[in-house]
Design a protein around this nucleic acid. Structure first.
Length: 270
DNA sequence: CGTATTCCCTGCACGC
DNA sequence: TGCGTGCAGGGAATAC
């Protein structure tokens, strides 16, 4: 389940294969993923050179001359650079052929991902209202504290709101709150500045560490080179319901928040 | 505006 | 062995 570190890992893995290459063809094996794939992908993109591969939030942008292909991996999306001789499977929905002779293949069994088009000089609506990058200078405890003022909902949901800060999904929200010692159900507006400073630092630390580790592998995420990440071995609370806290030994508690599993340590998180 | 809920989709783990 | 059920989850859309 790609969150920001997995997307960043994918970006870094793809970039050397893509930057400077020309796209020679686009093959769609179905017309849509989460949304219809725009005609520009087959009509405009082929023939263009890739200038850069960027990430914004959990989106990947493949910058070509007249615009960018905008990709989201959703829950189960994988991008790989392969020899075109590799036989495609049932969920290999899109191939972008490169002048290197290789293909960029987008696989997504659950089809929560998307492939869209952002014309040069425009910002796609999906990117228009996103919050700051968690690893940028715009994100810190003062910023979180200011934004949380009128929020009465649980801090976990606040932290996962992509208009507040991008890239923090269910796994890293749980881990960051554990590291900061904050109870995930505490109302966002009822947390002091000092604790938000701690939380912002925890988010940076957890995400930064996960990127270094190559992303968390759960179920169906693989990095572009096929090497699984192994951050999951270091998870403190996520997926550990009923087990004991690695720090204090207390039994970890769990509850549904919205539709998301939420796990915390009743002793370490207040 | 903020908050809670629903929905999209498939593969897998589970129980009988 | 096979079937049904529940679950996983990003985030847009919807309803208050």
């Amino acid at each position: 389940m790609p969150e920001l570190p997995e997307v960043e890992t994918t970006r870094a893995g793809l970039a050397p294969h893509l930057i400077g290459r020309r796209i020679t063809a686009a093959t769609l094996r179905r017309p849509d993923l989460r949304w219809p794939i725009p005609s520009a992908i087959t009509d405009v993109l082929p023939g263009q050179r890739i200038a850069d591969v960027r990430r914004r939030a959990k989106y990947l942008l493949i910058d070509a001359e007249s615009g960018s292909a905008l990709l989201h991996l959703g829950m189960s999306g994988v991008l790989r650079v392969l020899s075109p001789e590799v036989v495609h499977g049932r969920h290999d929905h899109v191939d972008l052929a490169l002048d290197s002779g290789l293909v960029l293949r987008f696989t997504d069994p659950r089809r929560f991902g998307c492939l869209l088009w952002q014309p040069a000089g425009t910002v796609h609506p999906l990117l228009a209202d996103l919050g700051p990058e968690p690893l940028s200078d715009r994100f810190d405890g003062d910023y979180l504290h200011r934004l949380a003022r009128r929020r009465t909902g649980p801090v976990k949901g606040f932290l996962m709101d992509q208009s507040v800060v991008v890239g923090v999904g269910n796994i890293y929200a749980a881990e960051s709150l554990f590291l900061a010692g904050i109870h995930p159900l505490r109302p966002a507006g009822a947390i002091a500045l000092a604790r938000y400073r701690r939380l912002a630092e925890a988010v940076r630390q957890v995400l930064g560490h996960a990127i270094v580790r190559g992303g968390t592998t759960l179920r169906d995420f693989l990095a572009p080179d096929g090497a699984p990440g192994y951050f999951e071995q270091e998870l403190q609370v996520y997926g550990r319901e009923g087990q004991s806290c690695r720090r204090c030994g207390s039994g970890l508690r769990a509850q549904k928040l919205g539709h998301r599993a939420t796990v915390w340590c009743p002793c370490c998180q207040r």
